[in-house]
Design a protein around this nucleic acid. Structure first.
Lengths: 206, 206, 206, 206
DNA sequence: ATCTAAGCGAGACGGTACGTCAAGTCTTGTT
DNA sequence: AACAAGACTTGACGTACCGTCTCGCTTAGAT
């Protein structure tokens, strides 16, 4: 009579206390705040544990490293939220410009955090991958959409959506590597760059 | 009786042992090797001291931080050498393509070291500045030279040498943030990017 | 329908599952084995729980500390068993010698475990008390018995059974504090001690 | 020609900063105080470091473990000082009684510290050895001295100085394992023991 | 030809953070 | 209500580096 019971017990459903969602959220939140406040290189596991009111072993139980926590911050959409969603792609260059400026504004507003993420991406491939998935790919998708709407372009200006997205990523990343004062000294070509990319170049439907 | 002595010591000329050039070179060399071998985040002052057979106080006497040593590596031309010099700017697109590909090849060949430098640039403005001076500015200068030779272009494709140089920097930096396998998976738009930039875009004489 | 049942439960008799005797025995057994194998200071509650296939809260529900578990090991006679019972006190010195050598042999055979118990006694009065009850008092009782049989002795060598029992305890405890090699190096006065105590001294009937 | 030089260089005399005697003394002192105040099992390396105002690595650089520190406390004579020196062995029983009572008084006055040392001896052979060297051997030496002065005794009560010293050690150790209240409850046979040992037993010149 | 101030390699110092282990508590679902 | 499992906070562990501080030894300009 136990046979049936045993066959049912296939899904033993993991006994024991469940992972605390509260603790998980507190850790990610603490990481976000500390990177923003102090810069990624000054964030320590101990500071995260203290701010999140969480034990160190709880952190090490679920994350392999400081980088992994940051990667999950990006993954869980807590860092690069809605701005990356396109508003309404009508194929109008103005729409594109507007959207790109919104992304740019978001980046400027969250520069310290994003600088930390990019710095982490340089020493951890997993963070780099999350950055691609959550920033580069959405940009590429938006450009792809516009490309399919805005029709054929002169061969001279064709550039695949992917290549163009990577140009954007590079510009964003490089911009983040420089201090605000450095960039803001009337010397920032980002505006020129965006204007050019948005209004003059035409994206090839790949 | 000291007064005369003092008056003689017009050029006090720093008495005592002179700084050891040998030690300085050994430290920079150790930094370069260790970054290449182990990645910047795994380089420690103690490892540098041990490999350079130098005492820690000697390092701290002359450099403020690990980042400062790396910045001096870049500064002293030990990291980004001759390739950045243009071969012979005739205004031919082929020349430009050749030169850019040479730069690209150099970067690929020294990716671990350069990744370390870029990572350092994200946490230290001085390193970022050295990177600008020794990589971005030479690129800009080369592009400027070509612009002045190749004449006026249609307004649609004009882009300042500075903006274009920054596009290049961004592309290089972003490329470095990704693992070779990731980039080399037949998926790398860098070639397309360079081809487009070199052969289709026209650089505005600023 | 439960109301009636409740009203019947005049002697509420502690509702719910009864304490598992199986779990209790497994914990004591695990403690005994681990102390013997690894030494008391390397025994942890977690190792006990794992070996006894018991949850940590079950241990904490019934015992206050690691020392309390060990104390119960002693209490429950699982550690200091029958050898401490005298065989047949006829007042013959040979009987006493035989019995004491049996105790000594038992102690040598279980040295690691007993060393653990004595070590615990030094940091927990409750363990010390159990040790007195289960080792010192039986020894004293045996000596008392002999004293009452073997008659009056010269005053010069009288010593109360209690004092003599404590001398024995001290000798045993001190012997346990030394490594076998240290003791066995042909240098051990324990034999001499026992011979003297048994055959020459006379115990005063208190 | 280098051979002579090499032979001279035998005494290279260890370059580098010398060990801080101050730090060493502060650590031993902190250990002594903490054991006395809180009991050995509640002493941690971190508490020692904090109280001694010393870095943890400094402790680990020079001592292998908590037990090793305590062993050095004993070794350096900071724990078992002068009382163990005999006053003037004239062979008079009164002298012996006086001296033994002095030792006993010292032990009572430093019971918490000595309890810690004995507890450590049960889990570390090195501590046990120091305890032998600095307590058992001096006692033995004193007894030996008296034996050589006080002349021949009846064979029935002869006991070697070594055996007698170990009896003392056992009595001391066992006494330490019990709480003061337990011992002081008018129930302590130590006095009787000492009186007997000093005044009635005769020590054999080994 | 000393003297002496600075630089040198070595390495110990007081600290901070690391990543791990165990303590004792709490939660979950089962018996 | 007790149980096995296991996640939780806390705190100590022993290690790696940090940046600073003696050491005893060059080294080289000033006396």
């Amino acid at each position: 009579m136990c046979e049936l019971a045993v066959s049912y017990a296939r899904h033993v459903e993991k006994v024991g206390r469940k992972r605390s969602e509260e603790a998980r959220a507190a850790v990610l939140r603490a990481m976000r705040e500390l990177v923003t406040e102090q810069g990624y290189s000054h964030v320590t596991i101990e500071k995260i544990a203290a701010r999140a009111r969480v034990g160190k072993p709880t952190i090490y139980r679920w994350w392999q490293s400081k980088n992994a926590i940051l990667a999950e911050c990006v993954l869980s959409g807590e860092v690069l939220p809605t701005p990356v969603e396109p508003t309404s792609p009508t194929g109008q260059a103005d729409d594109a410009a507007e959207w790109l400026h919104a992304v740019l504004a978001y980046i400027d507003a969250n520069a310290p955090l994003l600088r930390g993420i990019v710095a982490a991406a340089f020493e951890d491939a997993a963070v780099a991958e999350q950055l691609s998935i959550h920033l580069a790919y959405p940009i590429e998708a938006v450009l792809q959409q516009w490309a399919s709407i805005s029709g054929p372009r002169s061969p001279a200006t064709e550039l695949s959506a992917r290549a163009l997205a990577q140009l954007f990523m590079g510009a964003i990343v490089y911009r983040l590597s420089r201090t605000p004062s450095d960039v803001a000294a009337g010397d920032d070509p980002m505006e020129e760059l965006f204007d050019m990319l948005v209004s003059r170049l035409r994206i090839a439907a790949s």
